[in-house]
């Protein structure tokens, strides 16, 4: 009987230099605080001795370009590689100096995929997609020099409209929980991204966030009110810059009705930084 032994969600551009350039000294201070909380979450993840770590995150038009953009994609195979970008700029620079390859938990990934298709989720699969900062910055910040468990990367299309619905992401997370429960493994799960930033994906609006919206999301997670979160619309997420909350919706489905503990929330002009951990039974 498998168990989800750790669940957490967090922002995923985890680079003091990036925030120093974007927001000045306060950006460096707040991301450093965020990363310290995430590292502590990682210590608790390691202490739970997971056999696998599911990472739910989005692609930033690095892995999937415009030949195909899957709504939800399970990365299968034995190894995943870090995205390689020559002369990386901005958030892509976060990947520099990270280990280039990571083992996958092939059997759990296959189970999520195969049982998902049986259950009516028309999941995409990939043997080759690389992962960008959305996956690797949280994993490396959490685990530092400790061993990284075999990963199960799951891509959610957060940015290329039309995206999967919040309700569908939640339902898929419930499927993930069923797969874990029927498996022999102890599993950690993290979701990454956000919170509010880049509203309407508009360049002139880079530097705006929606704090009231994020506080509403956090309140719902803290109280375990997952109904209103499932009702979030694509338009709401687009207007508020809440696109990446779709990743969090998968995690919420996997842990519902567990309540969240807020480890960090920091308002920056560019993004609201967050780190959240769930109280699992």
């Amino acid at each position: 009987m498998g168990t989800i032994v750790f669940a957490g969600a967090m922002s995923h551009v985890l680079d003091p230099d990036y925030y120093d350039r974007a927001c000045g000294a306060i950006g460096r201070r707040m991301i450093t605080e965020t990363m310290a909380e995430i590292a502590q979450m990682g210590e608790r993840l390691s202490a739970a001795k997971p056999d696998a770590l599911i990472v739910v995150a989005d692609d930033h038009l690095n892995a999937f370009s415009f030949n195909c953009v899957p709504a939800i994609c399970v990365r299968i195979g034995r190894t995943v590689h870090r995205m390689v970008q020559d002369h990386a700029e901005a958030f892509d620079q976060v990947l520099d100096h990270m280990p280039p390859a990571y083992p996958l938990h092939e059997r759990l990934a296959n189970a999520v995929l195969e049982q998902g298709l049986d259950a009516g989720f028309d999941l995409a699969l990939s043997w080759e997609a690389p992962v960008d900062h959305a996956f690797l910055a949280p994993v490396n910040t959490m685990l530092g020099t400790r061993p990284i468990p075999p990963l199960v990367p799951i891509f959610v299309n957060a940015f290329v409209a039309p995206q999967p619905t919040a309700r569908r992401c939640f339902a898929f997370g419930q499927h993930v929980a069923r797969v874990v429960a029927q498996s022999p493994w102890n599993v950690g799960i993290i979701a990454t991204g956000g919170l509010s930033h880049f509203p309407e994906l508009s360049l002139p609006r880079v530097g705006e966030t929606d704090v009231a919206f994020d506080r509403k999301l956090i309140r719902c997670m803290e109280t375990g009110e997952h109904g209103p979160l499932q009702a979030l619309t694509a338009e709401e997420l687009h207007k508020t810059g809440g696109h990446e909350f779709l990743n969090w919706m998968v995690l919420l489905g996997a842990v519902t009705p567990a309540r969240a503990s807020l480890r960090y929330f920091g308002e920056l002009p560019r993004i609201n930084l967050a780190a959240v951990e769930w109280q699992l039974a």
Binding site: R21, A22, H60, L61, Q85, D86, H87, A88, E89, A90, F91, D92, F159, V160, F198, L201, S202, L203, P204, V206
Partner: peptide
């Protein structure tokens, strides 16, 4: 003009991350 390209439908994460051309 990355701002114009974004306004015309270019995805934000691309206009912000093309080496040597990125808008910040």
């Amino acid at each position: 003009d990355m701002r114009k390209i974004n306004e015309l439908g270019g995805y934000l994460h691309l206009v912000m991350s093309i080496p040597g051309l990125a808008a910040h």
